[in-house]
Nucleic acid binder design. Structure first.
Lengths: 143, 143
DNA sequence: GTCCTACCTCAAGTCGACTTGAGGTCAAGC
DNA sequence: GCTTGACCTCAAGTCGACTTGAGGTAGGAC
């Protein structure tokens, strides 16, 4: 497959052109070069963008993501860090599962106030230690 | 248990005083009243803060969280919305699981470049549809 | 060869989520 | 009765993640 220009990458990935330029500037993605003025991208950038989107959903900052995966897709040799991030993510997933159950319960619970519902409070208590003062990052915004 | 002043809430929850005032202003938490100038909080605010932290981790905006749970802990009667959020969360959890496996794999994979590793690419492809252009929110920041 | 459009740069603007700072109040301990 | 510390308000500042705008360039259809 040939190289793509930025508009094509935007079309295929759903990521705005302005964001692609911004990501390149930040070193999150790399163009293979220019044709005239125009950046050319390897189709592999699409996978990379999927990865970045995933990381943003996970609440990692762009800087963290850049540290996890080098812009050229080369191995990020800091395996320890990767394992640590995976564990961080594991904790996040557990918290989100709690929240999901809380929401589902809240949607079906007949108690007049959720806070008066024993089930809801039990779920919450399970989350409380660890949930407060938890890891904090900035996530992505809707287009 | 008696009412708490803001400093005590901050101490017990790990949430800075400035953030507590900010959350009150936004209607995310409510004080029961004042003693002199000082806001008094019901200890139940701690559970609420846990819930807010959970929501932030999930990538929901403060406005969304406010819509999910009224400041006084009263039922948010929009059960449909709660179910919808639970489903949104479910999708997020699935994506994060993919990312977690990707990270774990990246940490142990001997391939010179992750993008050359068939396992990694397979994992990514599984994520690709749906991961790009996914739901976008702003998450919390580390203190 | 010219014109259209998709691309380019660079500076400035926006938005959400907080934090910081200046200046003020009050209850308790000395 | 005065000081101290924990609280108060309100305006402004910060930070990450983008977006917008003004002004310029160039590949390719005609």
């Amino acid at each position: 497959m040939a190289e793509l220009d930025i508009g094509e990458v935007a079309r295929r990935s759903g990521v705005p052109v302005s964001t692609l330029r911004f990501y390149e500037e930040k070193g999150l993605i790399a163009s293979t070069g220019r044709r005239g003025l125009r950046r050319q991208f390897d189709p592999g950038v699409l996978e990379r963008l999927a990865l970045i989107a995933l990381g943003r959903t996970a609440g990692f900052s762009l800087d963290e993501i850049a540290r996890m995966f080098a812009p050229d897709g080369q191995p990020r040799i800091d395996r320890q860090m990767l394992v640590a991030k995976a564990e961080e993510l594991d904790a996040t997933i557990r918290k989100l599962s709690v929240l999901r159950e809380s929401l589902r319960h809240a949607a079906s619970c007949p108690a007049p106030s959720h806070m008066e519902c024993p089930t809801f409070r039990r779920i919450l208590r399970a989350a409380e230690s660890g949930a407060i003062g938890a890891s904090r990052k900035t996530g992505p915004q809707p287009p």
